[in-house]
């Protein structure tokens, strides 16, 4: 028996919004530590890694490890039926071919359940090595979303250059060029609003705007985002989900021909 109950059901709604444009299907791997999902987009340029820890749920039971392959469009449709303040419970029997989502309104006066067929997915699973990154940038997630949106008007690619002075986002295209420089916040009153840079080596990398814009669908999950970069390796864009886990996106860089 698998059962995971979350009073803050809107978290699951937001998680689906954060992955459904990038992934069409994915496997939710559940064990007694929690729920994990790892999947690449169709073109194998980016990867989503989601972790929701068991202790972040209001009730969590997983008697046997269970892998549930799901069509994410279908899951998103079902979760759209949940109210923002609803409690969401996911349930499945051992070896089941369906999963059930139960939504309860705060006053318990409305209870809905949706049963969905599971899929057998044979998806490639990548081993992501532990990496010490040369630069990590923490910044408000809404600011990052704004920068990605603004710069994608100028070109398909965005250059992210991190030095000890700050971080510069640039794009160039037919209409011209755009540069956005963020300096490290001098004094931090509210950590959520700060730009904090940790740098061992300066790094400049180029990424596809389209994927960065997909990643920013996670903005409502966290007030801050962390970008981790080293030369010639994928970028990591991490949104921490309060008290329960994180969603990380990996994006392969564009390399000069």
């Amino acid at each position: 028996m698998f059962e995971a109950r979350l009073l803050r059901g809107s978290i699951l709604k937001k998680v689906l919004e954060a992955i459904k444009d990038l992934l069409t299907q994915a496997t939710f791997d559940c064990d007694d530590s929690g729920i994990q999902l790892q999947a690449m987009d169709n073109s194998h340029v980016s990867l989503v890694s989601l972790q929701l820890r068991a202790d972040g749920f209001d009730k969590y039971r997983c008697d046997r490890n269970i892998s549930m392959g799901m069509n994410l469009n279908s899951v998103a449709k079902i979760l759209k039926c949940a109210g923002d303040k609803d409690t969401v419970t996911m349930k499945a029997q051992d070896n089941a071919d369906t999963v059930t989502f139960v939504f309860e309104s705060p006053n318990q006066e409305k209870v809905s359940d949706y049963e969905m067929k599971l899929m057998n997915l044979d998806l490639e699973h990548l081993g992501i090595p532990e990496t010490e990154y040369s630069c990590t940038i923490r910044m408000p997630s809404a600011e990052f979303a704004r920068i990605c949106r603004d710069l994608s008007q100028f070109g398909d690619s965005m250059v992210i250059a991190c030095t000890k002075e700050g971080v510069k986002f640039s794009a160039t295209g037919e209409i011209g060029s755009a540069n956005i420089k963020l300096a490290q916040t001098a004094s931090v009153d509210k950590e959520e609003e700060a730009v904090i840079i940790e740098m061992d080596e300066p790094v400049t990398l180029t990424f596809a705007c389209q994927y960065l814009n997909y990643f920013t669908k996670a903005t409502s999950l966290s007030p801050q985002v962390q970008l981790s970069m080293s030369a010639d390796v994928p970028l990591v864009v991490e949104y921490r989900i309060q008290d329960i886990g994180h969603i990380r996106y990996y994006l392969a860089p564009k390399i000069e021909d």
Binding site: G127, T206, V233, P234, A252, K254
Partner: peptide, 14 residues
């Protein structure tokens, strides 16, 4: 000009 790398170039199959 830049060309897009693919992710499995960096990460091994688990």
């Amino acid at each position: 000009l830049h060309s897009q790398e693919s992710l499995p170039v960096f990460f091994n199959d688990a």
